[in-house]
Amino acid sequence: MRLVAEPIARLIEELNKLPGIGPKSAKRLAYHLLRSSDEEAKALAEAILTLKEKIKLCSLCFNNTDCDPCRICQDKERDHSKICVVEKPSDILPLEQTGKYNGVYHVLHGTINPTQGIGPEELKIKELLTRLKDGSVTEVIVATNPNVESETMAMYLQRIITPLGVRVTRLARGLPFGAELEYADDLTLGQALENRREF
């Protein structure tokens, strides 16, 4: 015998598939939606549907967008001679929030992972090289995650881009704000020390 009505059970099951949502949270959310007004529930359902309908990839930078080229690529105010390379679309937002970057982006959609068989062909690297061909780009900023796989990719990018006469830079590595020196790993601390700056 079913303990809850089928529509509720179905919603709980679907919500349970979302990251970070366990069976308990899923149940709470489902009952919350049941109690909320029709408009609210419809707005949520519609938002999910339009998301899937309207969002596609920008033909230039491969970021998620509802217009092509995306708003960042269209923006004439931005500095199109700088391209910041990121692994996934969600990496762009934190970089934008810093308010310190005025160039454009390129999303690779993954990272080279030799042990999982993900090579350069699986990523949008060819497309990046095409963007660099006309010579208007002077700097590529590699903003990949500081871990072994992404490090491999950063070195690979540097190897293939430098011969094109484009400056390749990368995000600095060091201690995050609020961290403790005592617990920092050697790699990070070593690099923080190497790349120290004048006050």
């Binding site: 030799p114 072994v148 490090e151 491999t152 690979y156 050697d186 790699l187 070593g190």
Partner: peptide, 16 residues
Amino acid sequence: GFLALKSDLWRMACGL
């Protein structure tokens, strides 16, 4: 941390 190994593409690939 094998830092020297991690700073060279070829050696990193060998390591992996």
